[in-house]
């Protein structure tokens, strides 16, 4: 009922004891894959034969041939950690790490299971934990525990965004107040030659919408332009393939949805004193 896929991916933490041996002579050494970071830091090449040991002193080493390099799966929780890693076949890991205890050769850290029917995941987890006491079985998908740090970070970024929007709104309001001040005489003239308040209000709102939409679109374009630069900088800084900034249509739409009404509101609020004033007083004559 349960399809089972062998858990082959095993990491060897014996990097400290790694040393290059020879590269030319043919060897029966088993194949391993080496992370790009380890390959670069130790100046290794594909085809090299290296000695690995699970002992920090380098005791009891075994020879392996580097069959290829790989890029470690980006992991935000390991940001800043240098990924010095090796992947090898499970029997090789067991052979390298097993000690005198006969159980060592029979032990693995985890078994990855692929279910024929995803809907049975919860029931299967329950059955496994009941059938084999001391075993921890959990779903890999929809794992709230793993996603929790990123949910928290998302909340933090949202909070920062709220503060930034508040500061921007105040800035915008101050700017618009000054611009409106410059147009006090113009509005006064319009009132004196017969323009109604509602007509001027329409004009102000139309202008506000145009400015707000232009500003919001400029902001989206700027963020799209900066997206590549920011990603490249942090990918270089942390030596990772992680994507740090990703402007999706949803994010862009949300930004515009927040920015445009705020911009219009700022223009309307700053123009309020002009709309309420009498024409003659506005012209200051």
């Amino acid at each position: 009922m349960i399809g089972r896929r062998a858990a082959i991916a095993a990491l060897c933490a014996a990097v400290a004891a790694l040393s290059s041996v020879a590269s030319s002579a043919p060897s029966p050494a088993p194949d391993i894959l080496v992370s790009r970071q380890l390959l670069e830091s130790q100046q290794l090449q594909v085809g090299d034969v290296v000695s690995l040991s699970s002992d920090t002193s380098g005791a009891n080493p075994r020879s392996f041939r580097i069959a290829g390099q790989y890029e470690p799966t980006p992991d935000p929780m390991r940001l800043g950690a240098v990924r010095l890693e090796v992947r090898m076949h499970l029997p090789d890991v067991v052979g390298l790490t097993a000690q005198s205890d006969p159980l060592d050769a029979e032990s693995v850290d985890a078994i990855n299971v692929v279910l024929a029917n995803d809907d049975e995941a919860r029931a299967t987890v329950r059955r496994l934990m009941t059938a084999v006491p001391g075993t921890l079985a959990e779903r890999t998908g929809n794992d709230e525990r793993r996603a929790a740090p990123f949910v928290v970070l998302e909340r933090f970024h949202l909070a920062i965004a709220i503060v930034t929007v508040i500061a921007s709104s105040v800035f915008l309001l101050a700017l618009m107040l000054m611009l409106v001040e410059e147009r006090r005489a113009t509005v006064g003239m319009l009132r004196l030659i017969g323009f109604r308040r509602s007509r001027i209000l329409q004009h102000v709102l139309a202008e506000g919408v145009v400015i707000a939409i232009t500003g919001a679109l400029f902001g989206v374009v700027l963020s799209v332009v900066l997206e590549g630069g920011i990603n490249r900088f942090f990918q270089w800084r942390y030596d990772t393939a992680l994507v740090f900034v990703h402007i999706t249509p949803g994010v862009a739409l949300r930004s515009v949805t927040v920015a445009v009404p705020l911009g219009v509101a700022a223009i309307f609020a700053s123009s309020w004193s002009l709309l309420r004033g009498e024409g003659i007083s506005l012209t200051r004559r």
């Binding site: 929790a148 928290v152 970070l153 933090f156």
Partner: peptide, 11 residues
Amino acid sequence: LWLDQILKAMP
């Protein structure tokens, strides 16, 4: 205080 409270929810 507010931001600290948000981040401290991190497991």
